[in-house]
C-alpha cells in the first residue's frame, strides 16, 4: 500500500513530463460523420476529405488512427476532456474554441454561400431584406446573420434548424427565402439535385483546422503541420482536393492563420 502511494506520488511529479513525451498506440480521431465532403460514413466506412488527409498524415508520421463518430453537440467538449485525441471534421478556427482546445495550422478556407430556391428572383441583397431566412443552429452562417444583420436592426427573421438538410427542405417548400451555409456544403446540395441555387457568396474567410486536446499532450500538432506541408510538396494534397472537390483551385498548405486570439 505504502509503495503504491509512493509510486503514485512519483507518477504525479513526473506526469507533465511523461505526458509530453507519451505515445499512444492508436489515436482516436473524432469526426461528425454527417458533414460531406469532409466526413461521412458510407456503407459502414468512414469517408471524406478529412478522413483521407488524416490517414495520409498518420502514414507519413508513423502513427495509427481510429475514427470515432460523435455529433457536433458533444465533439468539442469530448476533445477538451481528452475522450478523443483529435478532431478532423471541417472544424472552423474560432477564439472561443481556441480557449479549450489547440488548433493545427489551417488547411482550408470557406466562405458562406447564399442559397435561394431554383425559381427564385431574389439576389444576395434582396434575399436578406424583409424576408425569413434560415441556417443551422450554432453554425457560422447562423452566427454571421445574427451578428451582421439581426443585431444591426435589419428587417429579417432568422430561423434555426437542427441540420442544413432541414433548412434546405423548408427553402424548397417556400417556407423561407434563403439559407446561408458553407460554400462546399452549398455546392453539395446543388450537385445532389436539390431545387436550390447559389446566388452570392459572403466573404467570411473562415479557416478549417485540425484540433487536439489543450496542451497537445501527445505532441501531435507539429507532426500534423509538418504532414500537411509534406502532403502539399509531394502532390498528394492536389490529388485529394481533386478527388473530393472537383474543379476547386489548389493552393499551398498549411495556410496562414487569420484568427488572432488573446
Amino acid at each position: 500500500m505504502k509503495r503504491a502511494i509512493l509510486l503514485l506520488g512519483v507518477v504525479c511529479l513526473l506526469a507533465p513530463g511523461v505526458l509530453q513525451g507519451a505515445e499512444k498506440d492508436v489515436y482516436i480521431v473524432g469526426v461528425d460523420a454527417a458533414f460531406p465532403p469532409f466526413t461521412w460514413v458510407e456503407q459502414g466506412e468512414f469517408r471524406g476529405f478529412d478522413v483521407a488527409v488524416i490517414q495520409a498524415i498518420a502514414e507519413l508520421a508513423g502513427f495509427s488512427v481510429e475514427f470515432r463518430d460523435l455529433p457536433w453537440a458533444t465533439i468539442i467538449t469530448a476533445l477538451a476532456q481528452g475522450k478523443i485525441d483529435l478532431i478532423a471534421s471541417g472544424l472552423t478556427v474560432t477564439c472561443e474554441r481556441d480557449r479549450v482546445i489547440d488548433f493545427s495550422l489551417p488547411y482550408w478556407e470557406v466562405d458562406q454561400a447564399v442559397l435561394v430556391r431554383e425559381d427564385s428572383v431574389l439576389n444576395a441583397i434582396t434575399a436578406f431584406n424583409g424576408t425569413v431566412v434560415g441556417a443551422q443552429a450554432g453554425a457560422t452562417g447562423y452566427q454571421w446573420i445574427e451578428d451582421n444583420l439581426v443585431a444591426q436592426g435589419v428587417n429579417i427573421e432568422l430561423r434555426a434548424y437542427e441540420t442544413y438538410d432541414m433548412a434546405i427542405r423548408d427553402l424548397e417548400n417556400g417556407r423561407i427565402a434563403a439559407v446561408l451555409c458553407d460554400t462546399d456544403t452549398a455546392q453539395g446540395f446543388v450537385d445532389a439535385g436539390r431545387r436550390v441555387k447559389i446566388v452570392g457568396i459572403v466573404k467570411t474567410g473562415e479557416q478549417y483546422a485540425y484540433a487536439v486536446t489543450a496542451g497537445d499532450p501527445y505532441g501531435l500538432l507539429p507532426r500534423i503541420n509538418a504532414g500537411l506541408r509534406r502532403l502539399y510538396q509531394s502532390g498528394v494534397w492536389a490529388e485529394l482536393v481533386a478527388e473530393y472537390f472537383p474543379g476547386r483551385p489548389v493552393g499551398p498548405v498549411p495556410l496562414k492563420r487569420t484568427a488572432i486570439c488573446e
Binding site: 460523420a33 454527417a34 461521412w40 460514413v41 455529433p71 453537440a73 458533444t74 441540420t163 450537385d191 445532389a192
Partner: peptide, 23 residues
C-alpha cells in the same frame, strides 16, 4: 446517438447527409 452509439437513427443521419436529401 448523442454519446456516439451508431444505432438506427444515427445510421439514417449518415445516409441523409451524404446523399444530401431523401429524409
Amino acid at each position: 446517438y448523442i454519446v456516439g452509439v451508431v444505432e438506427i437513427l444515427r445510421q439514417a443521419r449518415y445516409v441523409i447527409s451524404y446523399t444530401y436529401g431523401n429524409s
